[in-house]
Design a protein around this nucleic acid. Structure first.
Lengths: 187, 187
DNA sequence: TGTACATCAGTGAACGCGCGTTCACTGATGTAC
DNA sequence: TGTACATCAGTGAACGCGCGTTCACTGATGTAC
């Protein structure tokens, strides 16, 4: 072996950055290769196709996102506490891991329909947290899916607006406000 | 004149349908032409380019959407009433005018940055309604932009989930729940 | 009414372009003896 | 240590394809006299 296996990670990182900036269709494999200081054909030593690369990035990025949320909502703390942790985690991720979030938001319309609805799915994670809080009588019983989606919207819509410069500044500094809003909405 | 000027409208209608189904990049001008029972070159008698057609559709569709919301939030009724009208109108539009909503959601990432931030802009419309309710003391004073975006999220996120089959059934039948949620969130 | 001409919506064929992808090849590195 | 060979990451050149767009042309329709 002449190299550590870091090339594959390098490609993923540059590809996600470019896809996030311009969208999958507007980035050519030559663009990705150039960003990695290599030539286009060499990408095919690591990925079967451009489409496979993009789908890998989406599936993994989405699932890792779900893992983080699952970790935050785990445990036996009161729902209000877990909601707080959950929403702060989302704020932090959006402020920090901008490329990933932008990539997921920009390309969701191509891939979301194919994503597994398992325990790593972020929407499922939040649905389950909300549903269990209802079961436990911590919040009124309503349609859990609808309430979970609305809570997601409360945070994702401002985050998306930030991507377009519609909202300036970070989300983290508004986390208090957003958590309070979500809590009121669910109450 | 051999024909009424309905060709231009026909093109717009078929284009928005196809763009909504597959995304702008995945639809060729030949596809659009075929859907209109014409050949590709003829489209150029009506639009300068494919890009100009897509941008026209987005700009107009977005502005008309804003017009409808502005009409619903106009007047001197209490904010709670106008919020109710506003959100029901959004539910109705999403259930009815599916192509337009899907098109706007799918292509927003390409165009939203270029859209004018004027009195026809839907986000501005809702921002103003929320801000004026705060001024009038009908709801507590907070950052109006953030609150408006969160309210939008409460309804747009479920609507988007519906596009992917993540949520089944209509939005209109859930309008009560959604309005109540938004009202609590703002209170 | 008949005829000659003007108009113009619509098209067939072709254009250059950039794309994703393939493949025979290179040449530096590691291994065997 | 020196030499012959195997390995394999990386590449230059080329491929076919579908795209957006152009343009000279057609032919049905409307108008003038």
């Amino acid at each position: 072996m002449r190299e550590p296996g870091g090339k594959r990670e390098r490609i993923k990182q540059e590809a996600i950055r470019l896809f996030a900036e311009r969208g999958v269709e507007a980035v050519s494999v030559r663009d990705i290769a150039a960003a990695c200081d290599m030539k286009a054909p060499n990408l095919y030593a690591h990925f079967a196709s451009k489409e496979a690369l993009a789908w890998d990035l989406f599936r993994d990025g989405y699932a890792e996102y779900g893992d983080i949320l699952a970790a935050e909502t785990a445990g036996t703390a009161p729902f209000r506490t877990r909601l707080d942790r959950l929403m702060r985690a989302i704020c932090r991720l959006h402020d920090t891991d901008n490329d990933r979030f932008r990539f997921l938001v920009m390309t969701q319309h191509g891939y979301l329909a194919n994503v597994p609805r398992d325990e790593r799915n972020p929407v499922e994670v939040i649905c389950r947290a909300v549903a269990s809080a209802m079961e436990a009588g911590e919040i009124p019983k309503r349609e859990p899916e609808l309430m979970a989606l609305a809570v997601i919207g409360i945070i994702v819509q401002p985050a998306t607006a930030r991507l377009y410069g519609r909202l300036t500044g970070g989300l983290t500094e508004r986390a208090d406000e957003l958590v309070a809003m979500a809590w009121r909405a669910l109450s």
